[in-house]
Design a binder for these strands. Structure first.
Lengths: 200, 200
DNA sequence: CTTTCATAAATGACTGTTCATTTATTAATA
DNA sequence: TATTAATAAATGAACAGTCATTTATGAAAG
């Protein structure tokens, strides 16, 4: 006994919300803007997600799930663990192709940090990313790309910090492209621990 | 020709604004909250700073000037350039002693990035910090703490990214204290380039 | 008396939320 | 099969609250 079918799917609405956040930031986000984007009306969004905050929670949950799923199939088709690591870094910034969008999405993440329920999902994403980084570093050691004995756990934390931090410096000084700066920063960090570095 | 003297100084108001931002975030910032903090009334702030945005611009300007002045006298009393560098990292997070406050101040920085006028001051702060980091790294090379031939420019960029990024990871997983994690991350990054590392 | 600072009240715009109503679809009944 | 009931989705108008800003007025100094 189903009633009227939904005109637009939840995931479409959430994607629209993410798009709006990227454009006007989390503070400028309004139900009217999201509703406009998908051809609905503000009240409908409240009825479907309970409240504005409910929509944001749903968005955080979807993002977390998507990120986890993405990390699973990251190694496929990459020539080496370290190349896969660089790909992870770049693709984690997929939605942030301009300094403004990066800033707005980062601001959304900051908002997450002050709301217990949102923080939960942000933490899931964060730990999934660190797990993926650590796995790739361990694999790099196993395959001989990195020196045996490397403290991969400490390195993983630094790599993760470097990814977010490089995005921020890029958004500030706006020089070059983000992918190229990520590549430079990460390879610079890992260079002293690579095998070929031993020949120096 | 002075009329009635001001009850509270501009700098006091701006400090209060920074405090409010740290507590409720830039989105939750309201003129009423700031006015309350200093014992004034919202309208007064509008008259003195032109608008809410004017107050934020003034805050950004003051922060930039304070940061520049602070970097000047950073080397004094520090045993070594690298120790001074660690001090710089820790003190740049002075206002962000809790994960929430870090998140809120970072969100304010993100807001800066989308407003041309605010971005200008954020850029000044950013470049002043990078200049200070670079100077300390160069000094470390000159004094023999770091290997000669080290690419200090590239390293400075990484250090700066690492500072902000480590703050973010700390705000997310909330493990340990920020100073100790900053110290670990930065020394880890620099370790391969230190002199004593050559003995390996 | 003029100038500057501060106040208090009022305004106007914006926004999340609610509610009654309409629309579209499925299930049951004769 | 044709018709009716039940259900969920969506609408549009209205509500209530918040907040920055403006205006008119008073107070404190030179």
């Amino acid at each position: 006994m189903a009633g009227r079918p939904r005109g637009v799917d939840d995931s479409v609405i959430l994607r629209a919300a993410a798009e709006v956040i990227g454009r006007v930031g989390p503070a400028g986000l309004t139900l009217a803007a999201v509703a406009d984007e998908v051809g609905l009306v503000p009240g409908t969004l409240v009825q479907r997600f309970g409240s504005k905050r409910g929509l944001l929670v749903a968005l955080a949950r979807q993002s977390a799930h998507e990120a986890e799923a993405h990390h699973e199939r990251l190694r496929q088709g990459r020539p080496s663990p370290l190349e896969a690591l660089l790909a992870l870094a770049e693709e984690s910034m997929a939605l942030m192709d301009t300094p403004e969008r990066f800033a707005n999405h980062l601001a959304f993440l900051c908002m997450d940090l002050t709301d217990p329920q949102l923080h939960e999902y942000a933490l899931v994403m964060h730990e999934a990313q660190r797990g993926a980084i650590l796995a790739l570093l361990d694999e790099a050691v196993a395959e001989g790309e990195l020196r045996t004995g490397t403290d991969t756990a400490a390195l993983a934390e630094s790599v993760q910090a470097l990814i977010a931090g490089t995005g921020l410096t890029w958004a500030l000084d706006r020089q070059g492209t983000l992918p190229e700066r990520l590549r430079r920063a990460i390879t610079g960090l890992l260079a002293p621990h690579t095998r070929c570095e031993e020949k120096r």
